[in-house]
Amino acid sequence: MTTDSTALAPIWGVMLGIAGGVIRGSVPFLYVSLGECLTQKSGKINLGLEGVLLLGAMVACATAVATGSAWIGVIGGGLAGLSLAAIHAWLTSLPRVSDVATGIALATFGGGVAFYFGKPYIAARPPVLPSLPLGAWSDLPLVQSALRTSPLFFIGIALAFALRWFFRSTRWGLHVRAAGDQPQSARALGISLGGVRTAAILAGGFLGGVGGAHLSLYFPGNWNEGVSSGQGWMAVALVIFARWQPLGCLWAAILFGGTMAIGPSLQAAGYGGYYHLFNALPYALTIALMIATCSKNQRLAGQPGGLGKGE
């Protein structure tokens, strides 16, 4: 057995690292991007998902430690995210308040609150979510450990499909799309813009909080002030990449999760020289994406018409 694992060529180590990274690392991306997708479809931008992520992670850890159950911790994280997003929903409903600035303020505030109340939990070992051993078919421990999957991964995939169905075949989904694409038409139909958008922002916050919970309750599986790699900040870019489609968010999350794993995988395989630069890869990728897909006069395909117009 041992000879098998050491005979594994480094390239496979890197590939497995990336595969594992995709499975583990894509989950926060998936949840924040689905949450932001829902929010943006209704016409609002929430740049504060980083704060939501951090607060969700911290509260999830605290709740799990207090109740002994990781799943309750996940719910707790989601609710924390929802509460923070509620501030965003309220503030941005006031006149002359910028969506973008509010998001950044919330990220600052949410992060601060998370760090402050999270101090006692830094050394804590919370109960973690169960891992589904997708690699059980292999004898190689490396493969087995790389393919351990959290249940939130599958729930997330299901959520992506559910969100797509929601937008297509439910009354509320149509209302959300109308509110985001042409607010005055939605108003003419008697749709309450404030109600729809608030619900979308709150739901987005809940999903972001769940994404954060995954960080502290699965991978890396504890709370500390560096637990986030900026997934919340990248949510907006992910949604652009996904062309505001839920399934697109799935692919975007997988891509980014994989990219984020390249640095650590290479370092683990002994190529540590460019560690920092590889860690910058997801951000650089997002930037490249934004440059490639944006265009001066035209609106991006799929972008809700009322986005960023403050109506």
């Binding site: 509010t102 919330l106 600052t108 505030f109 601060g112 402050y116 999270g118 101090k119």
Partner: peptide
């Protein structure tokens, strides 16, 4: 009060400033 307190204060200031824009 831990160092995160300053961050909390900054966040509160920021949110209050944004709210004040709507009062302008």
């Amino acid at each position: 009060l831990s160092d995160a307190t300053i961050l909390v204060f900054q966040g509160i200031v920021f949110l209050c400033i944004l709210f004040s824009e709507s009062l302008r």
